[in-house]
Design a protein around this nucleic acid. Sequence first.
RNA 1: CGGGGCGUAGCGCAGUCCGGGUAGCGCACAGCGUUCGGGACGCUGGGGUCGUGGGUUCAAAUCCCACCGCCCCGACCA
Length: 484
Amino acid sequence: MKKEDRFVKQITPKSVDFSKWYGEIIRKAELADYAPMKGMMIIRPYGYAIWENLKAQLDKRIKDSGHSNAYFPLFIPESLLAKETEHLEGFSPEVAWVTHGGQEELEERLAVRPTSEAIIGSMYSKWIKSWRDLPLLINQWANIVRWEKVTRPFLRTTEFLWQEGHTVHETSEEAQEETLMILAMYKEFVESELAIPVISGIKSEREKFAGALATYAIEALMSDGKALQMGTSHNLGQHFSKVFNIRYEDRNQNIQYAWQTSWGMSTRLIGALIMAHGDDSGLRLPPRIAPIQAVIVPISLGNWKDEVLPVAVKIQSELHEMGLRVELDQREEFTPGWKFSEWEMRGVPIRIEIGPRDVKENQAICVRRDSGKKEPVPLDALAVKLPELLSDIQKSLYAKALEFQMTNTHDIESYEEFKATLEEQRGFLRTFWCGKTACEERIKEETMATIRVILLEEDKSIGGERCILCGEKSEHLAYFARAY
RNA sequence: CGGGGCGUAGCGCAGUCCGGGUAGCGCACAGCGUUCGGGACGCUGGGGUCGUGGGUUCAAAUCCCACCGCCCCGACCA
């Protein structure tokens, strides 16, 4: 961006210091604030409004695909959490424990849920008796606590909000089908609502969820070239049904352990929005989830209160009637220029300027946040033009992000090239990997890059290439990246 | 958990070393007036346990000791 075009001067340009830029956007756009406890944050109304929009859109998809919402307890007795040992071992370093009720020490410690497989599994064993009880398709919206050592607002906080689905099925095939259906739903949701293109695939053994048979994930590339996991879908197989005794009588009157899945997406999505779309002037929110889709800024010149304001009020109420989220900024203590910068920083997709000149000409000036393009629009055309603009901005943000992802996805043929590319340009490195944890770990040690996902069978165009590190024959086409 | 940085008004900082002595600046905030098509200006005003505890001293933001917290960069994770 050219210097004279950069009107917002309150934040560090992201090219100068990405971390600082990220933190400043969060505080100055009033998305969140640091809490007085380490690793915790307050999600402020503007940030929470984004979450509510994301949640509404995702919740609709979850329900449309046959799932129902429920709510399970925040606390999990230690004995329950400890039943699946791989699960406990995976989470134990980051579990917070309640040891006292008032002054009295508890007989058994209570874990603050780091995820709810255990408590939900224990209840499912009571509810499921017959194949007629299946599939059981439940989702919960909840808060989760994980005692992380390194925290960053939205990306990794001690407490976060998420959605976790927990389903039970008659067969292994059905569980697998559910796992992949959710993965596809997540991808569609993120791409169409958040306008962020993602890659999807299976996680390596090392990166999979503790206690799962297989973990699938969607991953996106942030604009600093690092990858971010945006959602996971796990096929739990019978691991949890065996320890929680979730059994049913099948259609042939045999007693069987049930097959389960679990899947989740969190407030981390907000961090992704910031890092995938934001620019030097601040946030750029996709219209479909922006709390404010258009802001009207009246130009306070001359007798504007009588001449301009009534027109602005009328525009707002008309657009509001159409279901658009439109704000009229009639604060008198700020100049129009100040407001322009403010709303830009907060990522509002469209600004509608209206001043005395426009009123005379029966028009308003529409300015796009994504491109900065201004155009006069006749007042009676606003109702048609605005939805068009919003939809165009949504598409264009996605297209820009996709272009970025494609130009930063590199097909790699040698380990030397792998290391060089990572140093010089980051991004996704697409290459073959033999499937051995030893190779994966050595690559991580030497380059800080991890396997984000391995492409699924059906996505593979070619087979029989060789592992980037050891040279063994391999069918695993993997995406590597440095990740958050 | 390692390495670095920082705690002074809501935010950003100066003052601390090298000299202990009325706690300052910019922004923000409040009032009034003039302004307003890309972060306006004038005047007036309010706001401080100088991170916490201890010590030295007539006197500590400043010197000494201990502790706490936060941020950033690395090893582990939605």
